[in-house]
């Protein structure tokens, strides 16, 4: 087909679209889009302060070194703890958000956190249970085969159990080998 200055014809006219689709063209005028994404000053936000009051820092709170100060409000969800807390604290203290090391350390700390938390859970009355916590028991009642027909993701979904169970198997192997080595050393 020749490349011309004309736009290829549309399959339907505006009148046909208006008749078929509820609200077609309700925001047609670009000048009448009040929430159009652009910087606008003077919006009423409900704030009745110039500077928000500072939230109390009950314990030292990590922050990005790209901030000049601790922000007036912050989350208190899960304070730093354990080895993962040490890694996270170092990532925040040492590297800006512009450095890959900052984010890669935080992701590494997430993995450390998961291992630490799983191990800690075994000292409680509610140890982690990968079967119930993965929700995998829902498979049986939610059409596991039919749901996956014709999709591209099942070919990598087989990796999911490896990601979930793999670290447990690895940990079991390490524990087994360590115990076996200790027993052998004790015998000799």
């Amino acid at each position: 087909m020749p490349y011309t200055a004309d736009k290829p014809p549309l399959p339907e006219t505006p009148e046909q679209l208006r008749a078929r689709i509820p609200g077609w063209g309700a925001d047609l005028d670009p000048a009448d889009r009040p929430s159009y994404p652009r910087e606008v000053q003077g919006l009423e936000t409900g704030a009745h302060w110039d500077l928000p009051e500072q939230q109390e820092e009950r314990q030292p709170r990590e922050r990005s070194i790209e901030h000049a100060r601790l922000t007036p409000a912050f989350g208190t969800s899960v304070p730093l703890k354990g080895l993962s807390g040490v890694v996270r604290s170092y990532a925040y203290r040492r590297f800006s958000e512009g450095r890959a090391a900052h984010w890669l350390l935080l992701i590494a700390a997430d993995r450390v956190d998961a291992v630490e938390s799983h191990l800690t859970s075994f000292t409680t009355r509610r140890p982690d249970n990968p079967v119930t916590e993965t929700g995998v028991l829902a498979e049986a009642s939610h059409h596991p085969v039919r749901s996956r027909a014709g999709r591209v993701d099942p070919r990598h979904q087989v990796l999911d159990p490896v990601i979930v169970v793999g670290p447990w198997v690895l940990a079991a192997v390490v524990v087994y080998r360590s115990v076996r080595a200790m027993v052998r050393r004790a015998r000799t």
């Binding site: 910087e39 606008v40 000053q41 990005s64 790209e66 901030h67 922000t71 007036p72 409000a73 912050f74």
Partner: peptide, 17 residues
Amino acid sequence: CARGLYSNCHNVNPNAT
């Protein structure tokens, strides 16, 4: 926030700018 960029507020997230 004063410019309508509510999702980019500078006063609520100490962990990242």
